[in-house]
């Protein structure tokens, strides 16, 4: 098993850091899956994660200048590593103004992802910081636990308003309640609502649009056509943990081009964040009353 990659562009390093930072806010531990073309950050919906799942894929070529890997075998040319987000973030923190960052899988006392950061310096040669982040290699037989979750059979799919607007509102709603009800309809309307004994607050977002999905579960650019019968006015909702939702909104730092919210009434919300070279899916289960 071998992995060696290098990032040389400051913009790529910072972008990569923002992605890792977003994932690390969503989950403490997660899985990094390395394949020849893509990198994946995965969290499966276990009890420990509170029912949350994450599936993030990035096209490695858009970040790495050099990239070489050999998986566990020729047939299964992939590597799965269990990592602690906080540690990777610390390593990347050093790299924000770096000349280059090399990432490789190494074996020190324990398997590590080693980040070798070349920093600019006053003298002719570089300064160099090396971070060895311990990781666990996940055995081949466990790989099936880390497959892409299927697209849910959603009742509603809607493009979200700018995440920073949502974030401002959720930050205040967090102080009122632990849960928020997110609802949307086929008419480009979305509501956020909290309710306690003392107060009920609802924020209404209008003039959003609804995406179209084809049979293969892929996004199309045209109007959402499925419900023409006036039912598009009906709201579909789900009650979720406000803190987990708030964590997702941090994804705004990645400057996504689209963020889609798919709601399965009273079951789960599936967020789909799309950017040029990556996509992030985040599943939050409903908290029933």
């Amino acid at each position: 098993m071998r992995f060696r990659g290098r990032l040389v562009d400051v913009a790529c390093i910072q972008h990569f850091t923002r992605v890792v930072s977003t994932i690390s806010k969503l989950a403490k531990n997660y899985v990094l899956r390395i394949t020849p073309d893509k990198l994946y950050f995965i969290l499966n919906d276990s009890v420990t994660s509170g029912g949350i799942s994450i599936w993030c894929e990035m096209i490695q070529a858009n970040f790495f200048d050099e990239y070489n890997m050999d998986g566990v075998s020729a047939e299964f040319n992939e590597i799965y590593l269990d990592i602690i987000g906080e540690n990777i973030m610390r390593a990347l923190k050093s790299a924000q103004s770096a000349k280059s960052v090399k990432v490789k899988l190494t074996k020190k006392h324990t398997p590590c992802l080693t980040f070798d950061v070349q920093l600019p310096s006053l003298s002719v040669s570089s300064r160099n910081v090396v971070h060895d982040v311990p990781v666990n290699v996940i055995a081949r037989r466990l790989w099936e636990d880390y497959q892409e979750p299927p697209m849910p059979e959603f009742d509603i799919s809607i493009y979200m308003p700018p995440l920073r607007l949502l974030r401002n509102v959720i930050d205040r709603m967090k102080n009122l309640s632990s849960y928020v009800i997110l609802s949307g309809n086929g008419n480009g309307e979305m509501n956020l609502s909290v309710e306690t004994d003392m107060v009920s607050v609802t924020t209404h977002f209008r003039d959003l649009s609804n995406p179209t999905w084809n049979k293969d579960g892929e996004l199309e650019e045209s109007q959402y056509e499925i419900s023409q019968d006036g039912q598009s006015q009906n709201f579909v909702s789900a009650r979720i943990d406000i803190k987990k939702f708030s964590n997702f909104l941090i994804g705004q730092q990645m400057n996504p081009s689209k963020v889609i919210c798919n709601i399965v009434h009273n079951k789960v919300i599936h967020f789909f964040l799309i950017q040029d070279d990556l996509s992030l899916q985040y599943f939050i289960p409903v908290i029933s009353l």
């Binding site: 509102v169 107060v199 607050v201 609802t202 209404h204 209008r206 003039d207």
Partner: peptide
């Protein structure tokens, strides 16, 4: 604000 509306009902 900015076309977004919030209504609150406080006891």
């Amino acid at each position: 604000e900015g076309g977004v509306l919030t209504d609150c009902t406080i006891k």
